[in-house]
């Protein structure tokens, strides 16, 4: 199957980028760690937790989800750079499957996110964060996180193919931050004003964060407060699937209509 071989060639290109620019990629992997330490230090002291628990119990899974969202930026940048530099055109003029270009990007970005998660897990463990419900449950949580990343991948490819230049990517990146913050990443949504809390609750990022906390056995006060909170595990599966169902066809369509 040439599609698979071609996809692997495209994915390997990103792995070679890592080898050629180790500094950059290591910074990318450690950036969420920076967020974790920074917010842990900034907000942790201001919050009260039951005996034997700490802010990291809440924050670490939140940062996991946030890192999945930030992965979107890497996807967007990579796609836009290839379009604007003509690399995409070269791929399209080759006798290779167009699926491979997208699938290769997908493999590379999922690997990247897996490494990001590993680095974060190690940091979280060092800070005292634990999973309490056993390994299978924890693996299920990581599965949900990567599912969110998979869905956002298609959002990233679609935006990357649509905006086509680096300046616009920067603007989109600015919007990503509030989306990341307006969720249950850092604080329980139950502490927010009702209207804001509602928005944050329905943010798919919150569903994944809450579902992951449930699976890890970490506390999440918002998980029982509202309908969407109690149904977080379901939402953490459905929302990414919905995003994928919308953006996967949109991105492949966009890729094909680059020729119009």
């Amino acid at each position: 199957m040439w599609v698979l071989a071609d996809s692997w060639t495209i994915a390997r290109r990103t792995l070679t980028h890592w080898r050629n620019q180790p500094g950059l990629v290591i910074f990318q992997w450690f950036f969420p760690v920076l967020m974790l330490l920074m917010f842990g230090g900034l907000l942790g002291g201001a919050m009260e937790f039951p005996e034997g628990s700490s802010y990291y119990e809440l924050l670490v899974p939140g940062i996991f989800a946030l890192a999945m969202l930030f992965g979107l930026e890497g996807t967007m940048t990579a796609v836009t750079t290839d379009v604007s530099k003509g690399v995409t055109d070269r791929f399209r003029s080759l006798p290779m499957s167009s699926t491979a270009v997208v699938l290769g990007r997908c493999i590379a970005d999922m690997l990247d996110s897996a490494v990001t998660l590993l680095v974060l897990v190690a940091t979280g463990l060092a800070l005292g964060w634990r999973w309490h419900e056993g390994l299978p449950s924890a693996l299920a949580a990581f599965g949900l996180l990567l599912l969110l990343r998979f869905a956002l991948l298609w959002v990233g490819i679609f935006i990357g193919l649509t905006v086509k230049n680096a300046q616009s990517v920067t603007m989109v990146q600015v919007v990503v931050w509030p989306i990341g913050f307006l969720s249950s990443t850092f604080v329980a949504t139950s502490t927010m004003p009702t209207w804001l809390g509602t928005i944050a609750q329905w943010n798919p990022l919150s569903s994944t964060a809450t579902a992951a906390r449930n699976l890890f056995g970490n506390p999440d006060p918002s998980s029982t407060a509202t309908w969407i909170g109690t149904h977080a595990p379901l939402a953490a599966v459905i929302a990414p699937l919905l995003l994928t169902a919308v953006f996967l066809p949109l991105s492949t369509h966009r890729y094909r209509t680059l020729s119009r």
Partner: peptide, 23 residues
């Protein structure tokens, strides 16, 4: 119109990649 090559890869890595994509 613009050199459509990967800037991060070396010259050789670029050609090997395109060679593989040409099967």
């Amino acid at each position: 119109q613009y050199a459509a090559i990967d800037e991060v890869l070396t010259g050789r890595q670029n050609l090997v990649m395109f060679g593989r994509l040409n099967h």
